[in-house]
Design a protein around this nucleic acid. Sequence first.
DNA 1: GCTTCATTTCCATAACTATGGAAATATAGA
DNA 2: TCTATATTTCCATAGTTATGGAAATGAAGC
Lengths: 107, 107
Amino acid sequence: MDTTSAVLQLSSLAQEARLNIFRRLVQAGANGLAAGSIGESLQIPASTLSFHLKELSHAGLVNARQDGRFVYYSANYATMNGLLAFLTENCCADAAEQSCTPKTDCC
Amino acid sequence: MDTTSAVLQLSSLAQEARLNIFRRLVQAGANGLAAGSIGESLQIPASTLSFHLKELSHAGLVNARQDGRFVYYSANYATMNGLLAFLTENCCADAAEQSCTPKTDCC
DNA sequence: GCTTCATTTCCATAACTATGGAAATATAGA
DNA sequence: TCTATATTTCCATAGTTATGGAAATGAAGC
């Protein structure tokens, strides 16, 4: 992963509304949630929500799937794992002997 | 960790210059680097660098230590690990059965 | 084709963030 | 104290991001 992608993905998550949306989608699992249902549960107006979903989608952190009149959004675990791997390497590389132990196992 | 801290830490890293600074400090290890030496190696003007270091420091991702006329900055591994743990939980919680396996072991 | 409902785009506005030169501050040594 | 060097603060400017209402688009059923 290049730093440009990492920055894009980090910026996507570095915003309260978007981080909440992403967490909600992770909870929801592979089927995801319709846009309207995200907006309802997080109390975000449709146009604002659409803006944030586009950001997340552009960063590759969520996938969109149209189903009739609904658009289902779901978390893209591969991208998230790629980001975690990047951060882990940037945290730990050349610093193995430092106090650099994870608080939890990854997954 | 609360989402407010996570957002603050993510925002700090979600910027090309700051991500590079942080990577540089991780490479440098526990002794860290003087501000001027970071600026020189990354070609960042002093005032801009100072601004970014303050952001990272405010998020708790770097520590500052004054030594004579120099200020040594170093990566705060504990904060970074906390962030990784938060993201890992938010990536994997309630989704154990999804295709959510890390690309590498954490550290 | 008309209606209904879901979502996105458009747009103006407000708020925040990044940049870097110049001046200020701080420290060490002569 | 004077000087040199390191870093930060101040400040103006430019650029980016977030917000949400109104209008537009799209999809399904009658």
